[in-house]
Structure formats: C-alpha cells, structure tokens
Design a protein around this nucleic acid. Structure first.
Lengths: 333, 333
DNA sequence: CTGTTAGCGCCTTCAG
DNA sequence: CTGAAGGCGCTAACAG
C-alpha cells in the first residue's frame, strides 16, 4: 500500500480510503489512485486487514475424509453454498481416514484463524475436540459423531434407516442376510450395524455371524468381500450394504459372478440388495435394489447453518445440538 | 501471545521461542510455558506470523466449476494430495460456471495471499487472467483453457479423443451420429466438437446438423436432450457424449425409452454410445459403451506440480507451458 | 538463555 | 478532505 501511495503521491491512508470505497476522497484523487492500483495489479492484503482485533478471518475449515466419495463431495457442495452466501470462504482438508492427519489439520486450521470447523470425524478420541483445545472455535460434526462429543452434530438417522431396511428384507422372507460396512470404529458403521441387528432380534431372528463383513472403505475392497460371500457354501440371499461404496462393490461382484455363471450355462439366483446412501445409477441397478436415501448436500447445508447459528445466531451459549436427519427408503426395481 | 507471556511470567519472545521448537529456552521454563499454552488452548496466529516480508501464506487457491461432478472431485483430490505434501493448504471456491463469481473469487483469493491459483476457467475473456491482474501470482488452468491465455495449462487431448471415438463409430457403420456436449463457450466443448466434426470430414462424411445438441451442463438436461433425439423421425444410431454428465443422461434416457417400448411390446434397436470421461458403473452400462478415458486426479496432480514448479522449481521465468494429457479409448461391452 | 526493539500491511482514531 | 500515530500478533536482529 505504501508503494501505491508513493507512486500516486498521496499518503497510504488515502489509498486505504480509496480501497474501502473512496469516501472522503476527492474524486480526482480517487481516480488517480485507482488507476495506479490497476496498473500495478495491487490487491489489498486481507490477512493483514483482518489482523485487527475483532475482525473475523472469514474462513471456515472443512475436514472431509475423502472427496472421492460422491457422498462427501455432495456434502462439501452444500457447505460451500451456505458459507459462500455469508461472504466467507471454505478451507478444505482431506483426512483420508487418518486420525493423526486429522489432528494436524485441525491445529493448522485453528492457527489460520478459521471462525468455525465442520468435520467428518475420524476415530473415537473425544479429547481432541474438547472445546478448550479448539480455543473457543465452534465445531460441527457432520455425518458421524463419537462417544462423549460435546459438539453440535448433524447425523442421519442411521439406526432407523438400517432397521427399516433390514426389516423389509426379513419380511420379504430372507433369512441369510449379509452385512457389509465400515470398521466399527466409524460411528455410522456402528449405528447402522446396530439397526441391522436389532431388526433381526425384534422379529425373532439372529443375524448370521458369518455374513457380517466390516472394514471395507472403498468399492474395491467391498467387491472382494462380496466375492467371498458369494463363494460360501450357503451364500446370502440378500445383502445390506451400509454405505454407497459397499453397494457399488456388491453390485460389481454380483454382476461378475452372474456373467461367469451364465457363461457356464448356469443362471444364478437374484440377490436382493438394500443400500445406505444413494449413488449415480442406483436407478439402473442390474439387481433388485432399495436405498436408504437422503441428500448429502442437505446435510452439508444444515451443518453450515448450525455453525453460523452458533457464530452469530441465537444459539451462542446453548448446549450441543444433535440433528438427526430423517432418511427414506426408496425402491428401484 | 502476550497473554500467555503474562500468565507464564515471561516475555512474549520466550513464548514465541517455545512455540517454534523451544530452542534457547531453559527446559524448565519451556515446560511451564507449554503447560500454560495447553491450559488456555492457545494457537499461534499463522496469518500474523506470515505477515512478515518474504513469508509465504501457505495457501493455494483452487477454483472449480462444480464438485458435484465426480470428475472435478477427482481433480480436486489430486490437487490436494500434492499441495498437502508441501505443507500447504487448499482454499476451494466453486464458480458454478458463473464468470462473475469466478472473477470475484479470484480477487478474494488474491487478497488472501494465495501463493498460486489452479482454475477450471469459465468463459473466454483472457483479460481477467492477465499476469499483471494477478499481481504476479502464478496460475495454472486445469481441464480447460481459452484463446489468448498466457498461463500454464493442463488439458486433455480433447480433439484427438473425440476424433478417435467418432472414427470408430463411423467405421462401425454408423452414419446418424448424435453429439451431446457443453456450450461452445466452454473450451473443452469446442475442442471435442472439433474432433467430432473433423473425423466425419476426414472419412468423407458430414455430421448431421440436426443431431448436434449443445449446452447440457448436467445429467438432467442431457437426458431431456436425448429424449428429444430419440423421438425424431430419423433418430441417431450412435451417440457421442462429450462429457460424463451427458453420458449419464443418454443412458438414462435410452434405458427409459427402451423399457417403455418393451412394455408396448416393441424391442428398440440398441444405441451405440461413446462418451468422454468415465463415470462410476461405466463398466455396467446397459448399452454398448466405449469411453475416452483418463484419470482426473492425475490431471489435478499435474496441475499442482506445474504450479509448484513455477513457485519454487526451475521453470520460474519460463514461458507458459501446455500439457496435453493423452487419453485412451476403453470398451465396455 | 532471555528480553527489547522494530516492522510486516492495514485501518481506527484523532489532528489538521 | 487528508495525513500522522499507534496497534492488531508475531518474530528477526540485536542487546544483555
């Protein structure tokens, strides 16, 4: 700014005034300063600007496990939409399901003065997100939570979604139902498994322990897990896939097996699939499919709204709020 | 920091030293200061820290048109990977194909002292990215460019990809080939259309003007455009979809038409589809499909590498570089 | 090993 | 309408 001032032969203060709208500056001087600014291609340093006490940084930190998953991409889109509408910007970090990386990113983001954090948490340690560790920066957990969390959170109604889906399968007469999901250390994984199991028990059945496969974080590993299940002596007749990565893997595996069998002259029995989270082409699944569905961008929008509510809304000192978004069962057949 | 200093009864400088690794501080004092820091949950202000001359902000700005498209999500993933490896962070802005929004975001990012920009550009105006407008901040264009650009760019070999795909369709005997793509104001759209047309001409044919549909930016509009084409008196026998959103729309429309016809007792002739960019389940397309394929995260990684090369590598004063990534034709049948 | 000084870029406050 | 002074949070350089 000093350089501009020198070049325009005014004081830095005049340049500052011009950049802030030009109030109290003679039009002539203003135009001159503006010309110099344009020539040099000067941009006011926002970081220095926001150094002043009480100025907010205008940054919201968002930590996501993996944008390769369209689910989180959709969520990010929802968050960005709401954040941008307040004139703020989003800083994105990808934790890649790595707890250490997450911790590091949180510290870095706090150091960069984010006004708030929206996080898809990795792992269970509640200490890392204790309010005093965050230096008072508000936090909203999205899509997952963990025991002992004191933060606002937006979750899906995982338990009910998995419960309803499982009940439907049981009512359709299936007794050998497989479950493919994340590690149980992932909270949504645990909650969905819980719904799966309680539906069995409520209807007087026991889930088959040999059909539960946990720990698949991507479509490839899910596909292999499903290959495994299809090769069992007594394979499942239906599958609950606890997230879209697992659904995709199941469909791929199933399709391959079916094609191979057909080549050998055998027609494989159709498998019934229920999945959590939608994915592109769910409407064209080659096998009967129902989805526990919801809009990830909506989850993102709500997470951002919770955050701003705490930042500038009425809920400033309020206790942690938990929003459980309803899900709906959609049939594609 | 002053507060910490006061609470620990040392000078701010000592606190600063502790935070920078604790060199030249008595272990005893160090521990004490560290305890106070942990108690208060204090985080050093990175922005203030980087205010000093010569300090870099550690921020890379990334402007993407739409992360809802898995293609750009993959690209972002590639960028983030390389950026994070240098200890820097990514600031993301979504331009939503809006040129005004893009301009605003660029200015904002420059103000926030990004060290570099990676942009999927919207529109054609070359002035907005003139180096002097960017105040010397290096820029890499990703996936698209525009006439008169002086910036580094990573593009796909759009022309060749579209050319090869079209030639294949012509060689397979198709003469009524539809083209579904973006607006021509989008550079990739223009380049792909160019390949489509030149393949026709090279083999002695003319593209059918009534089968060219431009301007579909999402799967829904592509689906409607395809509905339209299928209702023609003389419908196409093959389709080239210039991006994955259009491919998805085509498949949806085709599938619906086929199901409707089947209900009416008619078996529709199969349509041959060639698409640009892959998408999930390309391997399970219900109609014969070939894809001009490439890895978007690779494009992102290369864009980031070009940027860092200019930032700290050898290519600092070099003229603009253009990388055209090869594509490959993959058949799913 | 520790503290003081000065300045990074900007703007509020106060004086002309 | 314009400028000078001072301070936001931090640290390099220079005393002690």
């Amino acid at each position: 700014m000093k350089d501009i001032a020198k070049a325009a032969d005014v004081s830095p203060m005049t340049v500052s005034r011009v950049l802030s709208g030009g109030k109290n500056v003679r039009p002539q001087v203003r135009e001159h300063v503006e010309r110099v600014i344009a020539e040099v291609g000067y941009h006011r340093n926002e970081n220095a600007r926001r150094l002043r006490q009480g100025e907010r940084s205008g940054l919201i930190g968002v930590l996501i496990t993996n944008i390769g998953n369209p689910y989180y991409a959709g969520m990010l889109q929802g968050v960005e939409q709401v954040v941008a509408a307040t004139g703020r910007r989003v800083m994105v970090g990808l934790t890649n399901e790595d707890a250490d990386l997450e911790k590091q990113l949180v510290l870095d983001f706090l150091g960069r003065q984010v006004e708030g954090l929206i996080v898809v948490p990795v792992g269970q340690d509640p200490v890392r997100f204790a309010p005093e560790r965050l230096g008072g920066v508000p936090l909203v957990l999205a899509s997952r939570s963990f025991d002992g969390s004191l933060a606002d959170a937006v979750l899906l109604d995982d338990v009910r979604g998995a419960f309803e889906a499982t009940r439907r399968m049981l009512e359709e007469g299936h007794r050998r139902i497989a479950y493919l999901g994340n590690r149980v250390s992932v909270a949504t994984g645990r909650r969905r498994l819980e719904g799966f199991e309680s539906a069995h028990r409520e209807l007087g059945f026991e889930p088959a322990p040999d059909l539960v496969r946990l720990g698949q974080q991507d479509a490839d590993s899910a596909e292999r897990a499903m290959d495994d299940l299809l090769d069992l002596a007594d394979p499942p007749t239906a599958v609950f896939a606890a997230n879209n990565r697992n659904s995709v893997g199941v469909i791929r595996s199933m399709n391959r097996h079916r094609a191979e069998a057909r080549r050998a002259g055998v027609e494989l029995p159709t498998l019934r699939l229920f999945g959590f989270d939608s994915f592109e082409f769910a409407d064209m699944s080659p096998i009967p499919l129902s989805i526990v569905d919801h809009d990830p961008s909506e989850l993102g929008r709500i997470a951002a709204k919770l955050l701003f509510d705490r930042l500038e809304g009425e809920s400033q000192g309020a206790p942690a709020r938990l929003v459980e978004l309803p899900v709906r069962l959609v049939d594609f057949s």
